[in-house]
Design a protein around this nucleic acid. Structure first.
Length: 425
RNA sequence: GGAGAGGUGGCCGAGUGGUCGAAGGCGCAGCACUGGAAAUGCUGUAUAGGGGCAACUCUAUCGAGGGUUCGAAUCCCUCCCUCUCCGCCA
């Protein structure tokens, strides 16, 4: 959420910065509402102050032995009633104005960082660096073809159990998924991340706090009879881990690594990536999340990205780092690095991690602050996938495929998986 | 699902209509004492919004919302949540 004060005092800045996202909003009317809200509040509190005085006066007069039925006190009471009526009226108006304001603010995305490059869409994203040597060849298979041969998962059975866009992992596939989750968690906890296994059903407040609601309700699965949703990413519960809290400055940065299944409706992506492990309604992800002091968030962004990259490096998977342009940023992000892994079968890079700095955007929505000496201020939050597990498996299959139908696995997985390759059953 | 108890500051806990943002304690910070520390003593210690250069000041907040009243943590109504016991259950 954006700062109301900024809306009042510098709407043209907001206008300009949201424009970089390709969003054109009428900031003038919003500013008017914000100003109105402030004015109403000032008026109301002045009246309330007067009313409080009268209340005190009556109290002390009665204490001093004045008859409660005396004309003096009657007059004060009448005055008090008058004020109350006015206050009620103002409160009504104020409530309306501030709920409109809040509604509008909750629907506005974060401002892009000054460092975020200009651009309209994904075509304008910039490659920052490459790692590893992409494997290229004509006879390389796509991951679902390899998986089929080996018998790693069954999509038809998943339709019977649930719907399309679900996967049921079997045998070596199930074991590999489990191995990857454990490997990633171990890698990050060894760096000092605190491990979290959060609830995957989250309430409306949590989804609002991290930015998924109110705008993206149609992207999440909702429980019919409860105020609960299936979490689209562990970022949601982890943000709310500290909602309405003040984290002492000496405890920062607080770094979490959270494994969770993730659920997304993928509304509007019919026909895209219908095969394999790339786009599913349910997938596993290991998420990195930092709560940091505002002054250190930029360095933290580089570090969280490096930590996500370290997974790909350990798994010997070639990738590139993309910086998203302003027009392609997610709702809560002010700056984002995407990691794209090389898929030799698809002959393309695919997103496998997204590392974003959200500034105080989520912290304001979730009211997460730090105490810096005497003053409390909003802290900054960052998140990054470390990594999306299903896509990691797809990358391992395509990159490790051998002519004989087996798949070689990276050395680091052997202790977790119990073998250095996959083989047809 | 049935029965009961309860939601007060960072924590514990008092407070049933009047100057209560809230006693007391714990914790924390500063000062004093000390060679240093412990103990002790004193002082301070919520958040948000508005006004002021500042000292400071106004408003709101005792789970949430509404009501009664000149005045509500305290009385009334509605809702939410937590805990305990029983039942069911991985």
């Amino acid at each position: 959420m954006l700062d109301q004060r900024l809306v009042r005092e510098n709407p043209s800045l907001i206008s300009r910065e949201l424009g970089r996202r390709g969003l054109h909003v009428d900031l003038q009317s919003l500013q008017l509402i914000a100003q109105q809200q402030k004015d109403l509040e000032a008026q109301r509190s002045k009246l309330q102050s007067e009313g409080n005085q009268i209340g005190k006066e009556v109290g002390s007069q009665i204490k001093n032995g004045l008859d409660p039925k005396s004309t003096e006190i009657k007059a004060l009471r009448e005055r008090g009633n008058e004020i109350k009526k006015k206050v009620n009226l103002l409160e009504e108006q104020e409530k309306e104005v501030s709920s409109t304001l809040k509604q509008q603010l909750l629907n506005l995305p974060n401002l892009p960082s000054p460092k975020c490059p200009e651009g309209k869409n994904e075509k304008d994203n910039q490659v920052r660096r490459n790692w590893g040597n992409p494997r290229i060849g004509n006879d390389l298979k796509q991951h679902w073809e390899i998986a089929d041969q080996i018998g790693l998962f069954d999509t038809e059975k998943s339709v019977k159990i649930a719907q399309s866009r679900f996967v049921t992992l079997l045998n070596q596939g199930a074991r590999l998924e489990r191995a990857l989750i454990n490997f990633m968690l171990d890698l990050h906890t060894a760096k000092g991340y605190k491990e979290v296994l959060p609830p995957v059903l989250v309430n409306t407040a949590s989804l609002t706090g991290s930015g998924q609601l109110p705008k993206f309700a149609e992207e999440s699965f909702k429980c019919a009879d409860d105020d609960l949703w299936l979490t689209p990413t562990a970022e949601v519960p982890v943000t709310s881990l500290h909602r309405d809290e003040i984290i002492p400055i000496e405890k920062l940065p607080v770094r979490y690594v959270a494994y969770s299944p993730c659920f997304r409706r993928e509304a509007g992506s019919y026909g895209r990536d219908t095969r394999g492990l790339i786009r599913l309604h349910q997938f596993n992800k290991v998420e990195l999340y930092w709560f940091v002091h505002p002054d250190t968030s930029e360095a933290a962004h580089e570090q969280i990205t490096a930590d996500a990259e370290s997974v790909l490096q350990s798994l010997e998977l070639p990738y590139r780092v993309l910086e998203l342009c302003a027009g392609d940023l997610g709702f809560s992000a002010s700056r984002t690095y995407d990691l794209e892994v090389w898929l030799p079968g698809a002959n393309a890079f695919r997103e496998i991690s997204s590392c974003s700095i959200c500034g105080d955007f989520q912290a304001r929505r979730s009211s997460i602050r730090t105490k810096d000496g005497k003053s409390t201020r909003l802290l900054h939050t960052l998140n990054g996938s470390g990594l999306a597990v299903g896509r990691t498996m797809a990358a391992l299959l395509e990159n490790g495929q051998q002519p004989d139908g087996t798949v070689l696995l990276p050395k680091v997985l052997e202790p977790y998986f119990g073998a250095n390759h996959l083989h047809p059953e």
